[in-house]
């Protein structure tokens, strides 16, 4: 965790009339790591992101990018891909990209050079003069992504970037994200798909009902939840599995079971007992909880 903190959110609260959208939220985002911003719908994700990109401003607290308060001046260093994507329907791809680039302070030949580069990379060069309505949904998504990175931002905020993309393009986008990460850029990745977050993110922030629930590196979080989880496949273990002094809960999957051990039970001890009682074991593995489990558990806890 020696990477530089680029984005600081400190005790941020945002209210809309009586409704509190974000309450006392603080976290740090580091360069060169992918930061997963997770939470159920209506948790305050969009409001927080809008404050980071300077669309709205916190009532109290502050947000700083590289030590500078978020303002319209800082916006040029941020690349934002909103969840709800939009392009001008009847405008040529090239014109739209030029406009979005100009709004981020990149214009003229430089803009055209970058647009050509990215369209080439996305294999969309032939579509330069086409209108949005002529493009497929996936193509539009890629155009939108190009608009997000044209001004080479320091920080990339991607809200559900993979929705609607086919697997090839998902892979492609992942590569670009990896590229940005190795260039020591900051990436915030917002999603409700835990499996994607698990694959991509180094750090996690889970918010629910306007408040922070869990935060930290994915590793640490998983370890703190993963002490007593066993992936098990075998026969003749019915007696032991129904012993509540050992097993608190069993979640059955297609061809294996997930055993949640009771407090204070040593997995080693359980394995020994199984072997002693003649259970035929084909799989016995200490696992970590999936992000999904943590998410569900934490969100349920609060309710």
């Amino acid at each position: 965790m020696d990477d530089k903190v680029t984005l600081q959110i400190r005790t941020v609260t945002k209210k809309f009339g009586e409704f509190t959208a974000v309450e006392d939220l603080s976290f740090d985002v580091r360069a060169g790591r992918v930061f997963g911003f997770l939470g159920p719908n209506g948790a305050g994700k969009t409001t927080t992101i809008r404050m980071i990109v300077g669309i709205t401003f916190p009532d109290t607290g502050f947000i700083e990018l590289n030590g500078e308060r978020i303002s319209h001046r800082v916006q040029n260093r941020i690349g934002y891909l909103p969840e709800e994507r939009g392009l001008y329907k009847k405008m040529a791809v090239l014109d739209q990209l030029r406009y979005f680039a100009a709004l981020k302070g990149v214009a003229g030949k430089e803009a055209d050079k970058r647009i050509d580069h990215w369209l080439g990379r996305m294999e969309l060069s032939d579509w330069k003069k086409k209108k949005t309505t002529d493009l497929s949904k996936g193509m539009q998504q890629k155009i939108q992504f190009i608009a997000t990175v044209l001004h080479e931002p320091d920080i990339l905020i991607l809200d559900e970037p993979f929705s609607g993309l086919d697997p090839i393009n998902v892979e492609f986008l992942m590569d670009v994200i990896a590229e940005y990460r190795s260039a020591e850029k900051t990436i915030i990745f917002s999603t409700h798909l835990m499996s994607t977050a698990e694959k991509l993110c180094h750090d996690i922030l889970l918010i629910n009902k306007a408040r922070k629930v869990v935060s930290g590196s994915l590793r640490e979080i998983k370890e703190s939840y993963g002490q007593n989880l066993i992936a098990f496949r075998g026969t003749g273990a019915e007696d032991i599995l129904s012993d509540t002094s050992f097993i608190e809960r069993i979640v059955s999957h297609a061809d294996e079971q997930e055993l949640h051990l009771a407090k204070g039970v040593d997995p080693q001890e359980l394995l020994k007992k199984m072997v002693d009682t003649g259970v035929v074991i084909s799989k016995f593995e200490r696992t970590e909880p999936s992000l999904n489990d943590i998410f569900i558990e934490k969100v349920k806890d609060k309710e």
């Binding site: 809008r50 990109v53 669309i55 319209h72 934002y80 939009g86 329907k89 709004l103």
Partner: peptide, 17 residues
Amino acid sequence: VEEKETRIAEILFSSAR
């Protein structure tokens, strides 16, 4: 209305006042 309907406003507002 187009900018609102297509949510382009979100991108615009994250770029300029």
